[in-house]
Write a protein that binds this DNA or RNA. Structure first.
Lengths: 336, 336
DNA sequence: CTGAAAGCGCTAACAA
DNA sequence: TTGTTAGCGCTTTCAG
């Protein structure tokens, strides 16, 4: 902790601090000879520029904050990795903010932007409305959103195409002859759930399969929710041959219910989930699932946000709609 | 982005910036009347102190960096959560650094400390030696380590008691009459693996069970490694009745091998792993496992490190050895 | 109890 | 090509 300062280097090299700064920042306006001398001194003194001084002077923290609902969810880990790797490669750092599923916390983290602790904030959380975020964005703060579409032209966003995601599932099932397909939704307040249901309905139409409201049941994205939803559904109807669950957790719940009810998968019932979590490969039969491009959602958005901060405000594309990929496994396919 | 500054507030309230600063920082040296007036102006102007200015002046970033080998590993997520929640509650922020399993990256992140981007660094990675870390700590930088014991008196550390962890497993097995217990290690370079093996050997002695070298086989903490290790072991000997794997991934490998070899668990072979990952509850039979206090490892260390930075350098306890907990499930217990 | 003034370490006009 | 100078926004002596 010697704490050499730029002035120390300057004196030792017999130049001004400005010149040292120029050398440090790779300015072309420095004599080669001088540059070498300064570099030499920098090495000798083991000088490391103090980032706080730089930040204040440049009014840039070179840091992004990412707000997630719960750092424990593996869903976020991949997104964070995407953001982190991209940010680091562009010389930015990443602050992690765990909102602990509390709207209040999400709001509090916004202060990191306002008090200039970070240059931009990425929300991967559902609580804050477009309007709330817009008021900040319109004030000139840099905000990005992952997981849903936002219409404010200042807010870049990346999200999965849930309509085509649902279509892929329905067509995969329809191709195998299924006509009675049930859908288990997540929270009805979640955009993801709404969009998947919407896509499901659209796809049925496209596939020429009549929509039956009684084949749609509410879950809540949890295993237990899926279990309950399936049981309720099954108590009403027994004629459906396939279930599309809005995520894999609910598919696990369906598995549990089927085990209890003596329904064999995929012979009597075919199941497809979303997220392709690791567990889907460890139950028998393995669960077919739609894999979201999580890493990409993170890296694409981070890149765009950083790009935008560095002046390319006019760059055209602001919304990144990425496609999920169907991973077919035994739960939805006899002949695999 | 109005960017009100302290001087603006000062003028408006007809006081000096110093007084505004005092109000902001809750100094007692302010007349109640003045304080109210200043507060009023702060609210009116919606003044938010600029953190960069504060950081530079106070020479504190109020930020910790956490370096992990791979943000995707669920193992780290819990530790990060522990650090994050504790840090936030003490008004610190957390920077996440993904070393991507590269030693070089770990080294690079140390620069965050040196250039004063963060006040302290927590290493949850294995690559850097005690000596390497010590040289920084001795220079006055604040470093903490999670996952292994470090002897430098300036470096606080938190880790699981692997000796007692292994003992708990061995005694659990011995109590059920097992005398031929196999051990599958992780990487031989990993402290965790070494300590668990050491604990295993010690515990056998304590339990009065003769040690048999041929019942110890090398794995590498991966499922495939566990699979291979078990196959090798089994090709040599068939008389053991229990396997203790250094982590759950390897236990999954054992499951796979047993399925192929027609060995039934727990009737013919009992299995115990470490980490109690979610998957252990979804295979049949569920895998008994030692659960590490990951959240605590993170929060305890963060608390200590922050405490230490704030002057309590003399506080006695520097090493936090926490106990793992045995979660008994069907893989190691017939009568469950 | 309050204010003036001096920086924290750095960069960027502006001059030379 | 280089140096001088003036801050970035804040806190904290030191006087009063």
């Amino acid at each position: 902790m010697k704490d050499i300062k730029i002035i120390d280097v300057a004196k030792q090299a017999d130049v001004s601090p400005a010149t040292v700064s120029r050398v440090l920042n790779g300015s072309k306006l420095v004599n080669v000879k001088t540059r070498q001398r300064v570099m030499q001194v920098i090495r000798e003194l083991e000088y490391i520029p103090n980032n706080m001084g730089k930040q204040l002077r440049c009014r840039k923290a070179m840091t992004l904050a990412v707000v997630v609902s719960d750092v424990l969810a593996s869903y976020y880990a991949e997104i964070i990795k995407g953001i982190e790797n991209m940010a680091n490669s562009l010389n930015y750092r990443v602050l992690i903010c765990d909102a602990q599923n509390q709207r209040q916390k999400e709001l509090e983290f916004l202060s990191l932007l306002i008090n200039h602790t970070v240059d931009a904030l990425i929300m991967v959380t559902p609580s804050l409305s477009d309007e709330e975020l817009s008021s900040y964005a319109d004030d000139g703060y840099h905000l990005g959103v992952i997981g849903r579409k936002v219409e404010n032209p200042r807010i870049p966003c990346s999200f999965t195409d849930n309509i085509s995601l649902a279509r892929d599932v329905v067509f995969h099932l329809a191709e195998q002859g299924h006509r009675k397909i049930a859908f288990l939704s997540g929270y009805m307040s979640a955009t993801d759930s709404i969009k998947r249901l919407e896509g499901f309905i659209k796809a049925l139409e496209e596939a020429g399969i009549p929509l039956e409201q009684s084949l749609i049941e509410n879950g809540d994205f949890s295993e237990i929710g899926g279990y309950g939803a399936f049981k309720r559904l099954r108590s009403q109807r027994q004629d459906f041959t396939a279930v599309f669950t809005a995520n894999d957790e609910m598919a696990l719940g369906v598995y549990k219910a089927c085990a209890e009810l003596g329904i064999s998968i995929p012979e009597q019932l075919v199941v497809v989930g979303v997220d392709n979590i690791r567990l889907t490969n460890y139950v028998v039969p393995r669960i077919s699932s739609m894999e979201q491009p999580l890493y990409m959602l993170g890296s694409v958005l981070a890149e765009k946000l950083i790009d935008q901060m560095n002046g390319n405000r006019l760059a055209d594309k602001r919304q990144f709609k990425l496609e999920a990929e169907l991973i077919v496994k035994e739960s939805s396919c006899m002949q695999i």
